[in-house]
Design a protein around this nucleic acid. Structure first.
Length: 566
RNA sequence: GCGCCUGUAGCUCAGUUGGAUAGAGCAACGGACUUCUAAUCCGUGUGCCAGGGGUUCGACUCCCUUCAGGCGCACCA
């Protein structure tokens, strides 16, 4: 699409000698208030170089470039040079672009030829799939879609927590208090019960922890009984997790979790030892990171078994060898920030320059009003419960507002799940938040259903319009303020997607889509679209199409469905 | 103790790599459906941008410091 900023910086560069076009381009901003114009060039930086007041510079520049058919107005206001693009040209440029690109509007090919790995969700086997897991799952899912949209080759990995001492604990608990029948009947619920009981008992009897450690060591050394139990628990868990992933519409290219790397551990340890990176300490092997201002990382325990960071070293190496990634992104909560800093540093020390291509996308913690989520303490809100409740509420609202709707079940699912997901991706990922049923189940205001509703309105108008075509549009009919507000918003979409990509921040798209829906709802309220005036109808209909495509593209990028009716 | 993160309207949060009068939603009150779905739209805000210093023509934004909350720091993940 035509880059207005580029056009302006190009013109300005011919008049300004002291700084280059690129710098000018970067300085140009979009004014906060629309009355000021579409783009603004602040002259303060030039002021020092030219030894003139910003005001005067703006005035002089204005005189030099005022005659240009591209601009409707060029004004100098308190040190800013403000540009207003010719509205008809603006409208035509944007709408043509959207209608031409359709579901690819906003996409670019900056990712062409690059493979990106995104590790997300990474739930723990045999434990509750709870509200705390939705963030990694949906942030990762969204990043997956954003990267894909930008033409990257993307590999989504669910790095399952299917290994480690916790399995020793589970096996111990199963041997002491469990039985086959209960697990077959109750699935993960029973595994959870055993896990909670283990922790209760271990508080009274610390010897249990030795038992658990020893079971994990057995598992790691290939003990058959341990392996069979482990495999069984893993399968049971995955079946239940899949149910939730299906509801959310999330999938993965790989489920290579921690256990996948167990046989790659010896080689990693050998390499670390050969490179003289390990130090013995208290029977354990550590990497001393004090010169980098970090506490040491433990690589093997006293009994020789491995830890989290060891497996992550193996995983990173494996991924580099297998996928030759451009970036390897870990969507994992911020409590694990230090872990990733250590991991990246160790790989750097090992001599891998690609350690710079590893990214930890961290995010804040979800807690409950009663306190932090804790599987062990049984303080937990199951994700599936929240989703099902949201679907049920959506169903009730449909019955109330649109009882004749077809596919009620499907739409209720799309809207209910959309509401929950939207809530997760609305704020900056770094913020902690307290889960609340009423917020997750909100359907008014800045919510998923709000955006979906705007989309459904577009669809319903288009359907009603029947075979009215949108060729030969008279763009002068879209120069009113509420149309232009939409058009300017549409123009920003590609930049927003890039920004979300640069910052690993899906919320930028969530916010954008909400703003676009709002502009559209306002327009919709004030302007009849299907009128007796064919050329007016065509023009407005073209705008509706453009909004529809963009809303749908945006929702798709945050993993939310866009029903055509609701 | 050391390190990282957060602190903006009653509540939940935005705030465009330092820029022109700090914005939304919720809640409250008041308006708008014989017309394309009112899950919508419009109106009403006295915010020491946690406090204090500093850098700058200009600071919610950068630096220092204090306070408050959260998280992490050796054999869990």
């Amino acid at each position: 699409m035509v880059d207005f900023k580029k056009m302006i910086s190009n013109i300005l560069a011919q008049e300004i000698g002291v700084i280059g076009e690129e710098e000018i381009y970067n300085i140009i901003e979009i004014p906060k208030h629309t009355e000021m114009g579409d783009f603004a060039f602040p002259c303060f930086k030039l002021s020092r170089l030219l030894r003139k007041s910003p005001n005067m510079i703006a005035e002089e520049l204005k005189e030099k470039i005022k005659c240009n058919e591209l601009f409707e107005a060029v004004s100098a206001v308190s040190g800013y040079l403000n540009f207003t693009i010719n509205k008809q040209f603006y409208a035509k440029t944007v709408i043509n672009e959207v209608l031409e690109k359709k579901e690819l509007f906003g996409a670019t090919d900056i990712g062409k030829g690059r493979t990106v790995i995104i590790e997300y969700s990474s739930v723990n086997i045999a434990r509750a799939f709870h509200m705390g897991h939705i963030r990694s799952t949906m942030i990762g899912n969204s990043l997956y879609k954003i990267y894909k949209f930008l033409n990257y080759n993307v590999i989504g990995i669910n790095h399952l927590g299917d290994y480690g001492t916790q399995f020793g604990k589970l096996i111990t608990a199963y041997k002491l208090w469990g039985n086959k029948k209960d697990i077959e009947e109750r699935g993960v619920d029973e595994l959870l019960r055993l896990y909670v009981k283990y922790h209760d008992e271990a508080e009274k009897n610390p010897l249990l922890d030795d038992e658990a450690r020893s079971w994990f060591t057995k598992l790691e050394n290939g003990n058959e009984e341990a392996y069979e139990i482990w495999k069984w628990f893993r399968e049971i868990s995955l079946i239940e997790f899949e149910r939730v992933y299906r509801l959310l519409g999330v999938s993965f290219d790989s489920y290579a979790g921690e256990s996948f790397y167990s046989d790659k551990m010896p080689a990693v340890l050998k390499e670390l030892r050969e490179k003289n990176i390990l130090t013995k300490s208290d029977g354990a092997e550590i990497v001393d990171l004090s010169e980098y201002g970090m506490p040491p990382a433990i690589v093997t325990k006293r009994d020789g078994s491995t830890l989290y960071v060891t497996r992550d070293i193996a995983a990173a190496k494996y991924r580099k060898d297998t996928y030759s990634f451009y970036k390897n992104i870990y969507v994992v909560g911020s409590p694990q920030k230090l872990h990733f800093q250590q991991l990246f540093k160790i790989l750097e020390i090992m001599g891998y320059d690609w350690a710079n291509d590893l990214v930890h996308v961290d995010f804040g913690t979800v807690s409950l009003e009663e306190g932090s989520l804790s599987t062990r303490k049984g303080r937990v809100v199951f994700l599936e419960d929240v989703l099902l409740k949201a679907i049920e509420m959506a169903k009730n609202i449909i019955e109330e507002k649109n009882p004749t709707l077809e596919n009620k079940e499907l739409v209720a699912k799309q809207v209910g799940v959309g509401a929950v997901v939207f809530q997760e991706l609305f704020n900056n990922r770094i913020k902690d938040y307290t889960f609340s049923w009423s917020k997750s189940l909100a359907f008014d205001g800045e919510t998923g259903p709000y955006v979906q509703y705007a989309h459904a309105r577009c669809c319903s108008i288009i359907e009603k319009a029947g075979d009215i075509d949108i060729y030969d549009v008279d763009y002068s009919l879209l120069t009113d303020s509420s149309s232009m507000e939409i058009i300017k918003k549409l123009y920003q979409f590609a930049d927003i997607v890039i920004d979300a990509h640069d910052k690993y921040e899906p919320s930028l798209i969530t916010r954008y889509v909400t703003q676009l829906a709002h502009c559209f709802n306002k327009f919709y309220h004030d302007n009849p679209i299907l009128t007796n005036d064919l050329s007016l109808t065509k023009a407005r209909l073209a705008l509706v199409y453009a909004v529809k495509y963009t809303l749908k593209n945006g929702l798709n990028l945050i993993g939310i469905e866009a029903p055509e009716r609701m």
